[in-house]
Design a protein around this nucleic acid. Structure first.
Length: 280
DNA sequence: TCTAACCTGATC
DNA sequence: GATCAGGTTAGA
């Protein structure tokens, strides 16, 4: 469920409540959800030194240093709950803290993962090692060279975490609508002059989604239980058949890159494939 | 580069 | 009963 803005919201909610706390134990309630990539005996108790985000990953930093890495995937959810409270359904991992609370990982579909890493083991994970830059660190030139390559769809390019990290299905659709680009057009047909506006819209939409606490479509909640608000500002996502807020033409829902894709056929005209000149 | 698969639940 | 869902990836 969560993309960059939702993961950032979770991290910001957890940060003041986790920093300086001590992890006392880690309890697995379902095998396979937690992966241990460090050798030796259980490293608990261990102090939490900070919490950060990279792409859609939550990084809980521990003394050592070690890292507890969380990927929520589709339905994963973190909460900080009194340890005495009975675990909610689909709670798969519970991490006991010296505050008397548990950091609980709940995930209906069980796609999400937690792992314990050293900085070295994290760096050598193929998924982590191949992540592209954060959207807020991009220049126009870098965006063009990363997104504007290949004959695959522009939307697939935006969703490819190796090119740019953190964008998922909701924000890909919203960004492309704001930039006036058709999701199914080949990535290498985007004109050089279009990457500036694309970068501006990408950063604007992700930024305001973070300020809105992310988007709640069905079950996303931040770690404090708060629903997001940015879904109320979606222009196209989840609005198939409704009039485009810009031009009133009905928004269409199609399938691109194997994902439900919403766009305005008037604001986002499809440009036909075009031969591109290569410099090398 | 695209599909199917991983899972469960909600909705049609 | 079939289809869909905010992510990623193994395999064709």
């Amino acid at each position: 469920m969560p993309e960059l803005p939702e993961v950032e919201t979770v991290v910001r909610a957890l940060r003041p409540r986790l920093r300086g706390r001590e992890v006392l134990y880690l309890q697995e309630d379902h095998p396979g959800v937690f992966l241990r990539h460090v050798d030796g005996p259980d490293p608990w108790p261990r102090r939490i030194t900070g919490i950060g985000r990279r792409a859609k990953l939550i990084l809980v930093e521990l003394e050592g240093p070690l890292l507890l890495v969380v990927h929520l995937r589709m339905t994963g959810h973190l909460s900080l709950t009194p340890a005495a409270e009975p675990p909610a359904r689909h709670t798969h991992v519970r991490i006991g803290l010296d505050s008397g609370e548990e950091l609980r990982f709940r995930d209906t579909r069980r796609f999400g993962r937690l792992s314990l890493e050293t900085p070295g083991s994290l760096a050598s994970l193929p998924f982590y090692a191949s992540l592209g830059p954060e959207p807020f660190d991009l220049s126009i030139d870098e965006l063009q060279s990363r997104i504007g390559r290949g004959s695959g769809s522009l939307k697939a390019s935006l969703l490819d975490q190796r090119r740019v990290a953190g964008i998922g299905n909701i924000y890909a659709d919203e960004i492309l609508h704001a930039a006036g680009l058709h999701p199914a057009q080949p990535a290498n047909t985007v004109l050089p002059k279009e990457f500036g506006p694309l970068l501006v819209q990408m950063q604007r939409i992700l930024g305001s989604a973070i300020r809105g606490g992310g988007s709640t479509i069905r079950d996303y909640r931040s770690a404090d239980g708060q629903a997001g608000q940015f879904q109320n500002l979606h222009q196209v996502f989840g609005r198939g058949g409704e009039p485009c807020p810009t031009c009133e033409v009905p928004i269409r829902k199609i399938r691109v890159a194997g994902r439900g894709t919403h766009f305005c056929p008037a604001c986002q005209p499809l440009r036909r494939r075009r031969k591109r000149r290569r410099s090398t």
